[in-house]
Simulated assay, not measured.
Amino acid sequence: MHRGNRHGRSETAREAVLQAADDLVAEIGYAKVTIEGIAARAGVAKQTIYRWWRSKTDILVDAFAADSVQELTLPDTGAFHTDLRAHLDELVRFLEVSDSGAVFRALAGQAQHDPELAARLRAEVLPRLRARDRVPFDRAAARGELPADADVDLLVDQVVGPIHFRVLVTGEPVTPALLDALVTGAARGRPEARTAAGTPGPRSGTGVGRSGGGEGC
């Protein structure tokens, strides 16, 4: 019993640290966040944090991984067009508005000059995001709603990529008209991201690419 209580307290402290890191990035930006500040916000000692993480970046990677699972729910409407549009609406909200999106934008920026972080995002974060982005397409393929020869990986790239390009690179708004065009093109099995977005964008939502963008960091 005593061991279980200790474990429960540890998990509560860990969740408090993750939430504090999210909140602080959204409030003051990545550069100003410190381990000391996270500890004070979470109500834990710095030594407690260093038992689990080496740096604030490690905390934020773990926070984002947990948040993306909780906040991107992948609604199943039974039809590709509405599945995909619902997912894209949720993705835009997640990236642009939520504290978790602020964390992702901060990590993507930091990864441009932090090779270790870039490698970790490629290995631990981006594959999970891509797997979630694939879900509406895989459902549609299973239901026969996409052409038999549709390149699902390319469809995901060209639908999700322009959203990340606008959020992470240009700062242009992700408009309902853009989402409509992306969904319509994807439903034909011939995504039209180039004409809809004005650019093909980076590969499936990364923004942590090499100097010219793309999926790898």
Results as ranks from 00 to 15, higher is better:
Ala16Trp: 10
Ala39Ile: 06
Lys32Val: 00
Ala26Gly: 09
Asp157Tyr: 00
His113Lys: 08
Phe165Cys: 00
Pro127Cys: 10
Arg93Asp: 12
Val156Thr: 02
Leu155Asn: 01
Gly198Phe: 06
Arg143Gly: 05
Gly8Ile: 08
Pro136Ser: 05
Val167Pro: 00
Asp62Val: 11
Gly212Asn: 11
Ala197His: 08
Gly214Arg: 02
Pro127Asn: 07
Lys46Gly: 03
Ala142Gly: 09
Asp138Thr: 09
Arg51His: 10
Pro127Ala: 04
Arg188Met: 13
Thr170Ala: 08
Leu84Gln: 11
Gly37Pro: 01
Ala16Val: 04
Gly109Tyr: 05
Pro127Ile: 06
Ala186Tyr: 03
Leu95Asp: 00
Leu91Phe: 10
Ser55Glu: 11
Arg51Val: 09
Gly216His: 14
Val135Asn: 01
Gly209Asp: 06
Ala181Thr: 05
Leu91Thr: 12
Thr175Trp: 05
Ala193Pro: 02
Pro75Glu: 11
Glu15Lys: 14
Asp133Arg: 08
Ile38Ala: 04
Ile59Thr: 02
Gly205Asp: 04
Glu90Gly: 14
Leu60Met: 13
Glu15Leu: 15
Pro127Ser: 10
Gln47Gly: 14
Val208Met: 10
Ala21Ser: 13
Ala20Leu: 06
Ile38Glu: 07
Val159Gly: 02
Pro75Tyr: 10
His87Trp: 06
Arg93Asn: 12
Arg122Gly: 12
Leu154Ala: 10
Ala197Trp: 10
Val17Trp: 07
Asp89Thr: 13
Pro200His: 07
Val25Leu: 03
Arg93His: 13
Thr195Asp: 15
Phe94Ala: 07
Glu192Pro: 01
Trp53Arg: 02
Phe104Val: 09
Pro176Lys: 11
Thr184Val: 13
Asp153Arg: 02
Arg194Ile: 11
Ala65Phe: 01
Arg194Ala: 12
Thr73Ser: 13
Ser100Gln: 07
Asp138Leu: 15
Thr170Phe: 02
Ile49Ser: 04
Ile28Asn: 01
Leu179Met: 14
His164Lys: 01
Ala196Asn: 11
Thr48Cys: 00
Leu60Pro: 02
Glu124Leu: 12
Gly161Ser: 00
Leu74Ala: 08
Phe80Pro: 06
Ala79Thr: 06
Phe165Tyr: 15
Glu116Arg: 14
Thr82Leu: 07
Ala181Asp: 14
Ala108Glu: 08
Gly29Ile: 11
Arg6Asn: 07
Asp114Gly: 04
Arg6Ser: 13
Gly216Leu: 11
Leu117Arg: 07
Val25Lys: 04
Ala63Asn: 09
Pro176Gly: 11
Ala186Lys: 03
Ala141Phe: 10
Arg194Trp: 04
Ala196Pro: 11
Pro115Ser: 05
Gln19Pro: 00
Thr199Ser: 15
Val97Lys: 10
Val92Ile: 05
Gly213Leu: 14
Glu124Tyr: 05
Ala79Phe: 04
Thr34Trp: 03
Leu60Cys: 07
Leu74Met: 14
Ala119His: 04
Thr73Ile: 12
Gly109His: 06
Asp180Trp: 02
Gln110Trp: 00
Ile59Met: 06
Thr184Ala: 15
Thr195Tyr: 07
Ile35Glu: 01
Ala197Ile: 03
Gly144Ile: 10
